[in-house]
Amino acid sequence: MTETPFPNNAYAIELRNVDIFYGNFRAVKDINLQIEPRKITAIIGPSGCGKSTVIRCFNRMNDLVPSAHLNGEILFHGKNIYDPDVDPVQVRRLIGMVFQKPNPFPKSIYENIAWGARVNGYRGNMDDLVEQSLRQAALWDEVKDTLKKSALALSGGQQQRLCIARTLAVRPEIILMDEPCSALDPIATLKIEDLMRELSTQYTIIIVTHNMQQAARASDFTAFFTMDTDRAGIMVEYGPTSQIFTRPKDKRTEDYITGRFG
């Protein structure tokens, strides 16, 4: 650890010397990353550099890939979430996830929100929770009259906001977003970005994105990943977004940022 001005638990979540393997292939090596609480942290980098792999290890979604395993520590409230006594189900409730393609359940809009809360043992007023979650996701006004209709009838952008609302309904601390706008048009994308800004007052958000303008527009901190010579992903540079995009320290970051959009 080079610089830790705060004690461990002052970060929302922290990666320490993380290597991730698929079978024998090391997909990501030696990542050290401290995520600031209630900020938006963007992970950018070229295809295949392990961005999605990394974001999926924050809430142990990689456990679902049989061949995946991880070395190193991911500290959340001072506890390594990969410790054997940690239940991944509990991790995923506290660290929610929004996926690349909108994936609402083939149920009604209401059920989409209520289901996650219900399986997690929520005992309050469900109608209130649904309304509150939909309002937080800026979707309430569009769907308040069609709560019983199938979520699959919504547009792509609405579906993605529904997925965010669904995640909010289980009251997570951190929201992971894996390229949440890659399947959306520019207007829907802007809505999601506004929403992220709104949510970052209460939640820590980590977003993987291909779209560098999005990272520049919407995030507070940016981590730049690239592929090393052995095809393993490495983190090149991490810092405040303004600094990464205007005064990158590393040549590779500068090449990437200027090369694509320069």
Partner: peptide, 23 residues
């Protein structure tokens, strides 16, 4: 069954059994 459905369910903190039974 699309994997995205399973992921959505796990992502909300559902157990494997809840994912199988409900989705």
């Amino acid at each position: 069954v699309p994997n995205s459905l399973r992921q959505a369910s796990y992502g909300l903190g559902a157990t494997q059994w809840q994912t199988i039974w409900h989705h």
